[in-house]
């Protein structure tokens, strides 16, 4: 049963790749719920199913079986077009390799999800994107092309972009995996700040114990199953 404050609930979720004898079971009956405002780390060895679980939670991939609800909607029952719109409105992504659009400026990158929703870059979106860049400490890089930013700056732009449409859930796949320690700490400080102030739910896939220790909940995945889900040991 899900609690009223849960924004994401998955039950009995499985994901298989291939068919017949070559079937590979990547997720084997996952039950998971994320409450609004939670800050959770998703941990596990390579191949444990972390990326697959994030892809399904991000509605980029459909599960083989199981229930997937978000904000009370059964996501297994809506069309691809509606799913695309749902993802745009309610889910933000931060990737390990930032994946900014190199031909757009920092401001335009941040505005992108809004432009997808509105069909154009509105004045309000421009203001919000600028505010977000100020918030992530890049007010002096607003007009810079993504290619002119450092790794840490790019990842902060990516976080601002993920927050543009005020999503309820931000999925971050190794967001600090490509950064030095100092930049990684800055990015995580920013995530914690946004989480605390906006109550945006973060699920962060990471191998970094320090990053995981900074989250209020740690979810351990092993061989496609959740083996532990608890606050970090102090």
């Amino acid at each position: 049963m899900s609690a009223p404050e849960d924004i994401v609930v998955i039950e009995g979720m499985t994901k298989n790749f291939g068919s017949g004898d070559a079937t590979q079971k990547v997720l084997k009956g996952i039950d998971l719920s994320l409450a609004k405002g939670s800050l959770a780390a998703l941990q596990g060895r390579s191949g444990s199913g972390k990326s697959t679980l994030l892809s399904i939670l991000g509605t980029l991939m459909k599960p083989t079986a199981g229930q997937h609800e978000m904000l009370g909607q059964d996501l297994g029952r809506i069309s691809e077009r509606d799913l695309t719109e749902f993802r745009n409105r309610h889910i933000g992504f931060v990737f390990q390799f930032h994946h900014l659009f190199p031909d757009l400026t920092a401001l335009e990158n941040v505005m992108f999800p809004s432009a997808m929703h509105m069909g154009r870059e509105t004045r309000a979106a421009r203001r919000r994107a600028a505010d977000l860049l100020v918030r992530v400490g890049l007010e002096d890089r607003i007009g810079f092309r993504a290619t002119a930013l450092s790794g840490g700056q790019k990842q902060r732009v990516a976080i601002a972009r993920a927050l543009m449409n005020t999503p309820e859930l931000v999925l971050a796949d190794e967001p600090t995996g490509n950064l030095d320690r100092e930049s990684a700490d800055q990015v995580m400080d920013l995530v914690r700040e946004i989480n605390a102030e906006d109550h945006t739910t973060f699920l962060i896939s990471t191998h970094d114990e320090k990053i995981a220790d900074g989250c209020r909940r740690q979810i351990h995945l092993d061989d496609g199953q959740i083996v532990a889900s608890a606050p970090p040991a102090k």
């Binding site: 980029l60 077009r81 695309t84 993802r87 992504f93 994946h99 659009f101 190199p102 999800p113 929703h117």
Partner: peptide
């Protein structure tokens, strides 16, 4: 390819 994939993840429709 990667940019297009990210666009799709960010909510860009196939039509876009």
């Amino acid at each position: 390819r990667s940019e297009i994939g990210i666009m799709r993840a960010m909510g860009a429709s196939k039509g876009f």
